[in-house]
Design a protein around this nucleic acid. Structure first.
Lengths: 131, 131
DNA sequence: TTCTTCATGTAAATAGTTACATGATTCT
DNA sequence: AGAATCATGTAACTATTTACATGAAGAA
């Protein structure tokens, strides 16, 4: 099992409390989202990998027809987590498309440049779904 | 020609002055890198796309055996750039692995958590190649 | 002569998003 | 009844990095 970036996010959250994949997605969006996002397309496959490696254990909760699989971190998983936290990766990556636009808007006629500045402020009114 | 994120970065830089792919990479690393990075693997294919679309024009400079292809933005390209700057994309994405580690280090014994805090500071001493 | 920088380009791998299918439950 | 939420999962697509091959020119 080769750990990747999603590994520590999922394992770290399960270190806080047992959760389902769905719960993890919500927890990500409400907490580490601001410096480390993750999508279902990353979370569910990673849960499978982690379980196969024995770092977490999953259990189907019988809540009638509605499916739900709860995961909890294992002792081995907690050891791996604590070891993994000591890695070295200092780089910070930021992607801000509005800054990209703004820096090039510098060459535009003044009113147009002001339009570029104003546009994102309107977009801000649309709050993301997870808030 | 469907524009993507790299499109505006490359086109915007060529709006400043004519440049080669190599120059663009350096310009990116020295300027917009902090909110919009780009690698050779993105820049060179994008230059080809942009030239095919007629938004930029390239010309082989004859500097002896050493190859160098200079690109400049065309009138059409400048129009597209100015139009493209008015798009709406407000989201800011940040990836900071040291914060990810730090937030989960909270559950560690104190001396270990301090170790996680200290580790990135050592890494900082290694300055990236483009500085 | 050897090291660094200039210079182009791509293949392969990794990372991440989007969009959908599916269906139960709960809330109004 | 209808809408929203709970819940899992994946296929396809898009984005990005990494690592290499290649070779000339300039600096030490």
């Amino acid at each position: 099992m080769t750990p990747n970036a999603v590994t520590w996010a999922v394992l770290g959250l399960l270190g806080w409390r047992p959760m389902s994949g769905y719960d993890i997605k919500r927890a990500v969006d409400r907490t580490i989202r601001h410096f480390w996002a993750a999508s279902y397309g990353q979370i569910y496959p990673e849960l499978k990998r982690l379980e196969e490696a024995g770092w977490i254990s999953g259990k189907d909760a019988d809540r009638g027809g509605r499916s739900r699989r709860g995961y909890r971190i294992t002792a081995a998983g907690r050891r791996e987590l604590e070891g993994g936290l000591h890695g070295y990766e200092t780089r910070i990556e930021m992607r801000d498309e509005s800054l990209l636009r703004l820096v090039f808007a510098d060459g535009l006629p003044v009113e147009e440049a002001l339009g570029v500045l104003a546009a994102p402020r309107e977009g801000d009114r649309v709050a993301p779904a997870y808030l």
